[in-house]
Simulated scan of single mutants.
Amino acid sequence: MGAEPYWYYTDYQTDLNLALDTLRKREFQAGRYNPAIPLLDFPITESSPSPGAQHSSIEAALEASDADGTRSILDILRVSDTPCPLSRDEFETALLGGENQEIIGEIFNTAFPLPSAELLALFGTEQPTHEMIESVILGDTNTDAVNAFWHSIDRGTARYIIVYTENQPSEIFFIGYSFD
Score class of each variant (00 low, 15 high):
Met1Trp: 07
Met1Cys: 12
Gly2Ser: 15
Tyr12Ser: 01
Gln13Cys: 05
Gln13Gly: 10
Asn17Pro: 04
Leu18Cys: 04
Ala19Glu: 08
Ala19Asn: 07
Leu20Val: 06
Asp21Leu: 09
Thr22Met: 10
Leu23His: 01
Lys25Gln: 15
Gln29Asn: 12
Gly31Ser: 05
Arg32Cys: 06
Tyr33Gly: 05
Tyr33Ile: 14
Asn34Phe: 15
Asn34Met: 13
Ala36Arg: 15
Ile37Tyr: 07
Leu39Ile: 14
Leu40Ser: 12
Leu40Glu: 11
Pro43Gln: 05
Pro43His: 06
Pro43Trp: 01
Ile44Trp: 10
Glu46Ser: 14
Ser48Ala: 14
Pro49Asp: 04
Pro51Arg: 03
Pro51Val: 03
Gly52Trp: 11
Ala53Leu: 07
Gln54Glu: 13
Gln54His: 14
Glu59Thr: 09
Ala60Trp: 04
Ala60Thr: 13
Ala61Pro: 08
Leu62Met: 11
Ala64Ile: 13
Ser65Arg: 03
Ser65Gln: 02
Gly69Gln: 03
Thr70Glu: 07
Thr70Ser: 10
Ser72Val: 05
Ser72Trp: 03
Leu74Gln: 00
Leu74Cys: 00
Ile76Pro: 00
Arg78Cys: 05
Val79His: 02
Asp81Met: 08
Thr82Ala: 11
Pro83Tyr: 09
Pro83Ile: 09
Ser87Arg: 05
Thr93Met: 12
Thr93Pro: 05
Leu95Ser: 07
Leu96Cys: 13
Leu96Gly: 14
Leu96Ala: 15
Gly98Asp: 00
Glu99Ser: 15
Glu99His: 08
Glu102Asp: 15
Ile103Leu: 04
Phe112Ala: 06
Phe112His: 05
Pro113His: 06
Leu114Thr: 04
Pro115Ala: 15
Ser116Asn: 12
Leu120Lys: 12
Leu120Ser: 06
Ala121His: 10
Gly124Arg: 06
Thr125His: 03
Thr125Ile: 01
Glu126Gln: 14
Glu126Gly: 11
Gln127Lys: 15
Glu131Tyr: 12
Ile133Glu: 03
Glu134Ala: 08
Glu134Lys: 10
Val136Arg: 09
Val136Trp: 02
Ile137Trp: 14
Ile137Tyr: 11
Gly139Met: 01
Asp140Asn: 13
Asp140Phe: 09
Asn142Ile: 10
Thr143Val: 15
Ala145Val: 09
Asn147Leu: 13
Phe149Thr: 00
Trp150Met: 03
Ser152Gln: 02
Ser152Cys: 07
Gly156Phe: 04
Thr157His: 10
Ala158Ser: 03
Arg159Tyr: 08
Arg159Thr: 12
Tyr160Asp: 02
Ile161Glu: 02
Ile162Ala: 11
Ile162Tyr: 09
Val163Leu: 01
Tyr164His: 07
Tyr164Val: 02
Thr165Lys: 15
Thr165Pro: 08
Glu166Met: 12
Asn167Ala: 14
Glu171Ala: 10
Ile172Glu: 06
Ile172Cys: 03
Phe174Ile: 00
Phe174Arg: 04
Phe174Val: 07
Ile175Trp: 02
Gly176Thr: 05
Phe179Met: 01
Phe179Ala: 05
